[in-house]
Design a binder for these strands. Structure first.
Lengths: 141, 141
DNA sequence: CCGCATCCGATTGGATACTG
DNA sequence: CAGTATCCAATCGGATGCGG
C-alpha cells in the first residue's frame, strides 16, 4: 500500500506522502515555510531557555522574580525577551496586579497549555535517543 | 493533589514537579543542559531545513541528488552540512555504492526512525496552534 | 554526480549597567 | 520588584566557486 496512483490530477506531486507524517497539503512544502504546522510548532518553542520557561509556567503562574529564582542563570534581559516573545505568540499572558511595588504574573494561555503534549513528546524522544546512544555510542562509525 | 510534602529529604527541591512533564531527575535542570532529554531531542532536529530532510528520509532512502530535487531551495552546502550533522548524531547512515559515478544513499538509522513520533507531534501541535490563532488572532491583546 | 572551501551578512545570546 | 539599554562575541544561513 505504498506505491500507488501517480496518474491522478495534474501530476504536480513528486512523492507519495506518508499520511501520518504529512496528513494534509500544509505539510507538503518544499521549503521551511511559516504556514507549515511543523514550522509553527518549532517557532512556538524556539529560542534558548524557552522550553524551560514554559516548563515553569506549566506548573502554575509565576512572577518575573519567581522565574529568575527558578532559573538563576537566565539573565533578566533574555527572560524578558522570552516572555515578550511568548506573549506575542499568544502562549502566555501578562497580568499586572495593582499596588506597590508592581506585581506581575505570567500565566499560560489556553493555547499555551496545548504545548504540553509536545514538551512531553520531546522528553520521551530525548530519553529514547539517550538510551540508543548508550547502546550505540555516537562515534561508532 | 497538587500541594504536598515539601518536608522530605534534604529540601534541595524548590518545586513540586509534574510527573508527566518531568518524570525523572534528568528533567529537573535549572539550565539548558546537554543531558536533559528535552535538549537532546531539540538538538537532534535543530537547524533550519533539518525537519524537512528528515521528512524526506522518512519516506525512504535518498541520494544527495534526490534530496536536492525534492528540496530545490536548499543549497548543496547546507544539505551536506545537515547530512553530516545527522550522521554524526547517529540518526542517518551514509551508504556508498561502488561504481562510477559515485552513488551515495542516505538512510535513516533505527535511532533516526524513532524521531517519527516527535515529527508527528510537531505537526499536530502546529495544527492546534494555527487553529487557535485563527480564533484568537495573534494581536488580540 | 557528490560534495567541500571561502567569504560574508544577519541573527542570537549574554554580560553589564541603569531606570520606574 | 520588574524590567530596559548598550554593547559585543559567537553562531548560523546562504551565495558562489572549486575539486574528486
Amino acid at each position: 500500500m505504498s506505491q500507488n496512483h501517480r496518474d491522478v490530477g495534474h501530476q504536480t506531486e513528486t512523492h507519495d506522502w506518508d499520511p501520518e507524517l504529512v496528513p494534509d497539503r500544509r505539510g507538503r512544502t518544499r521549503r521551511p515555510e511559516a504556514g507549515c504546522p511543523v514550522e509553527v510548532a518549532l517557532a512556538a518553542i524556539s529560542g534558548r531557555w524557552t522550553t524551560l520557561v514554559l516548563r515553569e509556567l506549566m506548573h502554575g503562574p509565576c512572577s518575573f522574580g519567581d522565574l529568575r529564582g527558578r532559573l538563576p542563570d537566565l539573565s533578566a534581559k533574555i527572560l524578558s525577551e522570552r516572555l515578550r516573545e511568548l506573549t506575542a505568540r499568544g502562549l502566555v499572558a501578562r497580568e499586572r496586579l495593582p499596588g506597590f511595588p508592581v506585581r506581575t504574573r505570567y500565566v499560560l494561555t489556553s493555547t499555551g497549555a496545548r504545548l504540553r503534549p509536545l514538551l512531553v513528546q520531546l522528553y520521551e524522544t530525548g530519553t529514547v535517543l539517550l538510551d540508543a546512544m548508550a547502546v550505540t555510542p555516537p562515534d561508532a562509525r
